[in-house]
Design a protein around this nucleic acid. Structure first.
Lengths: 152, 152
DNA sequence: TTAAATGCAAAGAATTTGCATAACA
DNA sequence: TGTTATGCAAATTCTTTGCATTTAA
């Protein structure tokens, strides 16, 4: 529940590396902790879709004491800074990924298969929504559900 | 979690009235109970977006003993029969409405305001998703988030 | 040294489930 | 009379919060 109008990241430094992000965190009055470093490594190392639990498991390989609630708090913070975003791909837990690699999602209601949807596909909808309702769509946050090729 | 490929409703009777739906339920081996009748009345009487809790409150005006878990079970059943659908409009509880009045939703991430989105707007996206990924979108189930005119 | 971050346990919201009892057909 | 449906309590899943303690700056 955190969507910066103008992401802090944009004018605060280099969000493309773990240490760069930590520097941004520090500049914003946050502290560089090992849980934050490990979490960022997990996010940068495999640029996919990860639940908080996945990320906790990854972090805990290095530091077993880091608690899931700490992961959630750090994820919130990183999202507030605009470094990461979360998406809802279905009824399960939210998934987190680097803001830089944001994209839409098609998720099959039948088998759960997820396909990354190029922003280009949402252009028309974006234009219509804007023109007719003044509504600016964010096609990334909630997945577009439906049926994949195999299931329909 | 219930999406009939070919809704039972289609070939089973008249789903446009409370008693018609109850008849469909009976034909499918279900029983006509007062909780089902009251729930259907609540759904038919105000054709909006209702959470399970809303509906329970409405039903309980007539029959205070009807439990929320019964509402959930009946909603599942009605959805399985294709009479109603549920939609996720944000992070809160799911909302239920008659399948006949299904539509897409634009929900503002800032203020929560919801706008009903004509299916027409999703035509282009539907066509592209089909052509490029073989994916058949269901624009009704998850809302399209974004910013409303006032908030953007 | 002091504000921020953490661990832990507990609470919270939304939904589901197990089981004994009630009630439709 | 034989399922099917219900009430109730308890469990589940995902996430948040309060609070005492630790730690980075």
């Amino acid at each position: 529940m955190s969507k910066p109008q103008s992401p802090v990241v944009a004018d605060s430094g280099d969000a493309t590396t773990v240490e760069g992000v930590l520097e941004i965190v520090r500049k914003q009055g946050g502290r560089i902790t090992s849980s934050r470093r490990l979490l960022l490594r997990a996010l940068f190392d495999s640029k996919g879709h990860h639940t908080a639990e996945d990320l906790a498991a990854e972090v805990q390989k290095q530091a077993p004491d880091i608690h899931l609630s700490t992961i959630y708090r750090n994820l919130d913070e990183l999202e507030r800074l605009g470094v990461i975003v979360h998406a809802h791909l279905g009824h399960g837990p939210a998934t987190y990924h680097l803001a830089a690699s944001a994209h839409g999602h098609f998720v099959c209601e039948e088998c759960g298969k997820m396909t990354e949807a190029p922003d280009l596909l949402f252009r028309g909808l974006a234009k219509e929504a804007k023109a007719q309702f003044g509504f600016t769509i964010d096609p990334h946050h909630f997945a577009m559900l439906g049926r994949c090729a195999d299931c329909s």
